[in-house]
Nucleic acid binder design. Structure first.
Length: 270
DNA sequence: CTGACGCCCTGCAAGC
DNA sequence: TGCTTGCAGGGCGTCA
């Protein structure tokens, strides 16, 4: 499922085909995603030129020369298909560029979303207003993390999934980072030593960077926009590896926290 | 404010 | 073979 590295990879793929191009056709085919695609999306984007693409947390941002910004979220199963061979029931938004290249936002589960804001006010977009720092940015450090976790009694696993603490992590990379840092997922978030937070920040940065370099993970229905699969899933240390050996020699276990699977090694994560 | 939980949706895999 | 069941989980709403 798309977490930060997958969105980063997706945006890079889209940038290659959209940056500087005029959108000649914008066609929502099914508007009822997580929330409705804005009714004026077609009118506002058709004929506009894409000026920049970027990412905030798990959201992709597409700016145009009309001062509009399309903001998309891939939810659980969303992906952009480039030059799809066929259009099916799950292709919810079609975009064609000058030159005739067709793109499709495909999302079987429809947990994703597409929205439109003014570029100069994108930071006021509701999902962004209380969001924590980018984990790969300069505002994420052991100090800022300590402040965000101060007094929290919830587990560190739960806390790291809270986008207000740090933005863009999902279940996979939280499990991976906690294993890399040697921290038990059940440990109360507010009771982690500064030394271990330093390790955790490093682990988060390292796992995200490695995943981006590998082109993101592949889990069932995720694929890069160009159709190539991401290979980071082969590098998972604990995620999806219940019963297998951890690098430390321990046995990886799976538990449920807040209804979500947590993979960890009780031997080296304490 | 916090934490716990349910819900949205569909495809896939396991089990009977 | 064909059915049912459970699972995947991001983000948001509700509730105590």
């Amino acid at each position: 499922m798309p977490e930060l590295p997958e969105v980063e990879t997706t945006v890079a793929g889209l940038r290659a085909v959209l940056a500087g191009r005029v959108l000649t056709r914008v066609e929502p085919r099914r508007a009822d995603l997580r929330f409705p695609i804005p009714v004026d999306l077609r009118q506002r984007l058709t004929g506009a030129r894409v000026t920049a693409l970027s990412r905030r947390a798990k959201y992709g941002l597409v700016e145009t020369d009309r001062g509009d910004m399309m903001i998309f979220h891939l939810g659980m199963s969303g992906r952009w298909r480039i030059a799809p061979a066929d259009i099916g029931a799950h292709d919810h938004l079609l975009i064609e560029t000058e030159g005739g290249l067709l793109l499709s936002l495909n999302d079987p589960r429809r947990f994703g979303s597409v929205d439109l804001v003014r570029s100069d006010a994108w930071q006021a977009y509701a999902p962004f207003t209380r969001m924590g720092p980018e984990p790969l940015g300069p505002d994420f450090s052991a100090s800022t993390l300590a402040r965000a976790l101060d007094g929290k009694t919830a587990s560190i696993k739960t806390a790291l999934l809270d986008q207000r603490v740090v933005a863009g992590l999902g279940n996979i990379y939280v499990c991976e980072a906690l294993n890399m840092a040697g921290i038990a997922p059940t440990r109360p978030a507010g009771r982690i030593s500064r030394a271990r937070l330093v390790l955790l920040v490093d682990a988060i940065r390292e796992v995200l960077t490695a995943a981006i370099a590998a082109g993101g993970s592949t889990l069932r229905d995720y694929a890069r926009p160009d159709g190539e699969l991401g290979y980071f899933s082969k590098q998972w240390r604990v995620y999806g590896r219940e019963g297998e050996n951890c690098a430390c020699g321990g046995t990886i276990q799976r538990r449920i926290d807040g209804g979500r699977s947590t993979f960890h090694c009780p031997r080296c994560q304490r």
